[in-house]
C-alpha cells in the first residue's frame, strides 16, 4: 500500500508501469488519473488545491486501508497533489492490483468516491477574468458514497 500527498507532479505512465510490474502476479491492474480541466465557463488559469496537512495523509491512509480490507487486493496506490496546478496537469492517481478485475475496478471506484468527499482537499479555480471560485461539492458526490 502506497499513499502520497505531495506538491510536486508525478509521471502517471511511469508510476502505472512500476505498479503493474511490482504486481505482475496479480492478473488485474486498474488505474485512474484525474487531470485539471478548464472551468465550466472557460478561462481557467490555475487550480489551487488547499489541504489540511495534519489530517490528509491519515484520511487517505484510512480510506486506502479500508479498500485493502474490503476487496481482495494485492496492493493499492494513491497519490494526491496540492498547491497550484495548471490546466492539463495531473491532480491525483489511484491504482489497484487484484487477481480479479471486479475487485480491482470496484476498489478503484471506492477510492475515487471517498477521495472526492472524505479527503480534506479544497479546490479553487483562478480565472483569467481575475475572479476566483471555490469548487462546490456536489450532492451527487455525497450520494455516491451510499452505494458502498
Amino acid at each position: 500500500m502506497q499513499v502520497s500527498v505531495q506538491e510536486e507532479g508525478f509521471e502517471f505512465g511511469a508510476r502505472a508501469e512500476a505498479f503493474a510490474q511490482a504486481n505482475n502476479a496479480m492478473g488485474a491492474i486498474v488505474t485512474f488519473t484525474g487531470i485539471v480541466r478548464d472551468a465550466d465557463q472557460g478561462g481557467l488559469v490555475a487550480m489551487e488545491i488547499e489541504h489540511y496537512p495534519g489530517m490528509t495523509l491519515k484520511a487517505l491512509t484510512e480510506i486506502t486501508q479500508t479498500a485493502m480490507d474490503r476487496w481482495s487486493l494485492g496492493d493499492a496506490l494513491v497519490i494526491h497533489r496540492y498547491g497550484r496546478l495548471a490546466p492539463g496537469e495531473q491532480i491525483m492517481m489511484v491504482a489497484t492490483a487484484s487477481r480479479h478485475r471486479k475487485d480491482a475496478f470496484e476498489a478503484a471506484e471506492y477510492l475515487m468516491d471517498y477521495l472526492k468527499s472524505r479527503a480534506p482537499f479544497w479546490k479553487k479555480e483562478i480565472l483569467d477574468s481575475g475572479t476566483t471560485d471555490w469548487v462546490a461539492a456536489k450532492d451527487s458526490d455525497e450520494d455516491a458514497l451510499d452505494r458502498w
Partner: peptide, 12 residues
C-alpha cells in the same frame, strides 16, 4: 485539542 472548520471536501 484541535478543531477544524471547513466546507465539504472536494478532493479527487
Amino acid at each position: 485539542r484541535e478543531v477544524a472548520f471547513f466546507p465539504p471536501m472536494t478532493g479527487g
